[in-house]
Design a binder for these strands. Sequence first.
DNA 1: ATATATAGTGTATTATTAACACTTAGTCAC
DNA 2: GTGACTAAGTGTTAATAATACACTATATAT
Lengths: 224, 224
Amino acid sequence: MAVPYQYKYPHPAVTTDVAVFTLRNQQLQLLLIRRAQEPYMGQWALPGGFLEIDEDLDSCAKRELKEETGVADLYMEQLYTFGRPDRDPRERVISVTYYALVPTDKLTLSAGSDAAETVWFPLQELPELAFDHEEIILLARERLAAKTHYSTIAFQLMPETFTLSELQSVYEILRDEKLDKRNFRKWVLALKQLEETGGKRRNGNHRPAKIYRLTNPDRVDIVR
Amino acid sequence: MAVPYQYKYPHPAVTTDVAVFTLRNQQLQLLLIRRAQEPYMGQWALPGGFLEIDEDLDSCAKRELKEETGVADLYMEQLYTFGRPDRDPRERVISVTYYALVPTDKLTLSAGSDAAETVWFPLQELPELAFDHEEIILLARERLAAKTHYSTIAFQLMPETFTLSELQSVYEILRDEKLDKRNFRKWVLALKQLEETGGKRRNGNHRPAKIYRLTNPDRVDIVR
DNA sequence: ATATATAGTGTATTATTAACACTTAGTCAC
DNA sequence: GTGACTAAGTGTTAATAATACACTATATAT
């Protein structure tokens, strides 16, 4: 094949990488793919890939995620741009990174063409990672925890309906601390972002819990 | 000249752009350069330029700033990465943007080779800007205002020594609101980041003000 | 009927934030 | 040197927000 793309000055490659978080089994989990090509073949990495020449950065992140993992329709924010000159052994690569949240019930994984395998890992059990992806994940994790304090971002991890105890548990996992039940309920209801469905959830040998849904499921608000 | 840089797939160009803020005449001002080349020749733009193939993103931002404006040694943070496919008419350009703060007294401007002119503009009087630089500036301005609430970033705009009234004025300008003098002093002194120099500043026909300095001039802390 | 397990609820305390006005120490004009 | 002027400097009170804390309710299981 001829080499059709020529430039007067050297150009770096640009990729997007996405740290996708979800909650399963009361654990915060992260979506990783096993790399099917060199470099780092066989190693685990964030889903992501090269920017096409006429697509938006956001679109690239979503497209690569879809192609590699089948995951679509999630909440995504730009995180940071990484560009250490030696972060990729092939060539100079600038990675515009994102983090994303998706409730488990919206999920259908399917290994795509680029990735040999797509697996959820609990954050406590991450394997060794390709490139500087561990650094990216740590930054995303930090940002996520911080944002629970002043935005409704955590709601993006909730299924269609849920109980207040389930919601509290999500906050506890994200912040990695126990919260007081009464204070949490007071706080979260004051946000005016939840409404009762009227239903109740029976879930063991005890009183059933009221079921709630989000009044604005697709919106993340700054609160305080 | 031969065209030496060839790739199998198209590569975007990568630039950094920096929104440098300072305070002069009780106004928040922004550093702009008049473009000496096409596109947007003669128009005003943020200092910035193309990433060299083996330099860090941060280094690139600092280097371009130095080359174009003579400004060095300032506080800088990555802001956001912009990549709309049509944001540059020449070719696909991804811009990793930064914002920076510098106290006026650390400043010596000198028009560099790439820029015809380097000028400080009050934020209220920005000219029409090249590319999507207005959008970048607005985002930087927002971030800066938000950060005054939970970090000591505003201190980076202060000269070596200053009075509490001067510091309060900086906060008022950044947040665009009046602050209560007693409450502000209580709050800022509780941060334990200021120390009295012992000196006093006579500055008009009234009682002279105590002079303060930062205990950690080069540190920006998260507070509250 | 009883044991058990989580859901659900209110009040008192403390800490933080907000509102508010007068005295002090200089300069300047006369 | 007296009085007018100007910004510096200083505390207290009230309102709001955050925290600590324990019992009752309602289901299931035996």
